[in-house]
Nucleic acid binder design. Structure first.
Lengths: 342, 342
DNA sequence: CTGAAAGCGCTTACAG
DNA sequence: CTGAAAGCGCTTACAG
């Protein structure tokens, strides 16, 4: 069933049916009502392929994610999907599984007019390509980013949050501090390492090169890298880990090694996953506003797709150090504080 | 740039360009080569909107997921996405957040010709509606299902796997066995409860009605329901939990209550999430082949979309009881077994 | 306020 | 093996 069927039954032209649906203000009240009745009766739904071709708009957003099974990205994705649907857009999911080739394949969908714009949660291609792309299509980055990129980007300040996490460790008296980083080809990893280095240098602490181990995001990798650190003659007494998943693996490695977190080794994670707040030791970590990152990025993309411009390029959302148990700081007893403040 | 531009430059008709791309066997070698050169030179990519309208095929699969942030579903989704892309299809993500209304909104996309078929990882609508839908569109269910439904469905046998999990508890000598179920409006929950009941009855064990508590999937809910069970005068000595996430919450509740898993209370989970194998007690659980469920479901949908028929309706994949620590069974030392078998 | 007509960019049945 | 032509189902500028 198509628009002309509705038109016939309602004794109007297809043009009028289209107007009722898209520009109802241009149609008289009576006509509108009559057409609406027929539409309901037939349960008519306009064909999107046709309107996509005609309007040159797909109402689809392409979202490229490095890893759909990551609890972090799935929360960001929820923020994106929710905001997209609220605004009448659908989301095509592009799961690259951290493979740059697949990233390119998905980008192709933009050239093929299968999506109106893209949200990149991973940006492994080079800066020049990316900027060219953004001249042709509405593009917004989230989570990952590139230096001095002229494309709207939503993320937290990874350098300062990493510095904050490391400084927390320093303030607790740790000096032999290690870092399990993410893959070094990702700027996120480099920035968090930078924050770590800044905190160490600023506090006149030496960084032992053997104390920096590169992981690859997963629990197992956190376990393996921590085992490497534990095998050193003089192992660290604290570790700042790139993300909570690897931190979970690191904690397990420490326990398997017969040591205790935080008594023997303190751990700070990153992302504040739900699971990090369940098992003891409850993890001290950096909270990222995951849903909000997705939401904000989608809103920016929406304005770009409507033809608007976004002058500001860096949108830095607030992170927060969540102090729990994995660094040895007990959460102060709220009852006692209540007494004191009374 | 469009097909006619390519045609002009290659001195052929648009029809020929189209044939080069879609039915290359119909084109002479020379023409093909010439056209391909121009296509490369211009970096021409055919417009999907146009070909979608013309061919009445979108090459898009709609995937409706109850909760994109669930580690279980995100693995299934990876299987789907991977298989879809391999076969030239894209995935539109429909995250219902367990809301039946949103399920309906996504189904609309089928009527609007925005997708060629749908994969439902959640089926909350009634059977009649669903069967009507599947007469109009290619539909495959996965994970969730309905009784005697005439639509291809991929899942494990939830009744037998729940029975197996419960029997494991019984064989270890437990008698006061509780069950934290999923939401009772979901057939999955009812089937796992059924398996639990079958195992109990078959072993002449009484089911204490207070020992059955309904949760809602999440960690917090597992925690809360377990707390309810712990507050009973005579609390259970073992609990079969609907999924690993709630089992995680339940274990935490037990620990917070000052008891030990598995010494005081044994726990069996369901799904075999990665995280269930990290922290002690390592969880005994039912493994579901998540990726394979997604893969199989997608392959079935692909054959339906190609116009094929699927005679068999129930596709039951293999589950497996993974025995770890949360029921008190130590993994037998493989070295000893090796000695014995030698 | 409404209709007739053109056209979005492809694909394919038909003719040669 | 190739081209001309029709048409997929809408939308909108134009005319009235």
């Amino acid at each position: 069933m198509k628009m002309s069927d509705v038109a016939k039954l309602a004794n109007v032209s297809p043009a009028t049916v289209s107007r009722v649906l898209r520009q109802p203000d241009l149609v008289s009240k009576e006509t509108k009502q009559k057409v609406m009745e027929v539409i309901k009766e037939l349960n008519y739904k306009p064909d999107m392929s046709a309107s996509q071709l005609r309007t040159r708009e797909t109402k689809i957003i392409l979202v490229i994610v490095p890893d759909i099974t990551s609890p972090f990205f799935s929360k960001v994705l929820r923020g994106i999907e929710h905001t997209a649907v609220e605004n009448g857009y659908q989301v095509i999911l592009g799961d690259t599984e951290n493979d740059i080739e697949r990233e390119k394949d998905y980008i192709d969908l933009l050239y093929r007019k299968q999506a109106d714009g893209a949200l990149l949660l991973t940006a492994r291609m080079n800066k020049e390509n990316l900027e060219n792309l953004s001249k042709k299509f509405p593009i917004v980055l989230a989570c990952e980013y590139l230096d001095n990129l002229d494309i709207p980007t939503v993320s937290i300040d990874n350098v300062s949050s990493a510095r904050k996490a490391t400084e927390h460790l320093i303030q607790l008296g740790h000096t032999k501090i290690a870092h399990i980083s993410g893959p070094m080809n990702i700027i996120l990893s480099r920035d968090r390492l930078k924050g770590f280095q800044q905190a160490m240098t600023h506090n006149h602490l030496k960084i032992n090169p053997a104390f920096i181990q590169e992981g690859d995001y997963g629990i197992d990798s956190g376990y393996d890298q921590m085992m490497k650190l534990l095998s050193l003659d003089n192992h660290p007494d604290a570790v700042f880990v790139f993300n909570d998943e690897m931190a979970l693996g690191a904690i397990k490695a420490i326990q398997d090694h017969g040591l205790i977190v935080p008594d023997d080794i303190a751990i700070v994670g990153f992302d504040n996953l739900k699971i990090a707040s369940i098992f003891s030791p409850l993890m001290t970590t950096i909270d990222q506003p995951k849903y909000e990152i997705g939401q904000k990025a989608t809103k920016l993309l929406l304005t770009l797709m409507k033809g608007g411009t976004v002058k500001k390029k860096k949108f830095v959302l607030k992170d927060e150090l969540i102090v729990r148990e994995s660094c040895g700081t007990k959460i102060p007893n709220p009852c006692i504080e209540d007494f004191i403040s009374q």
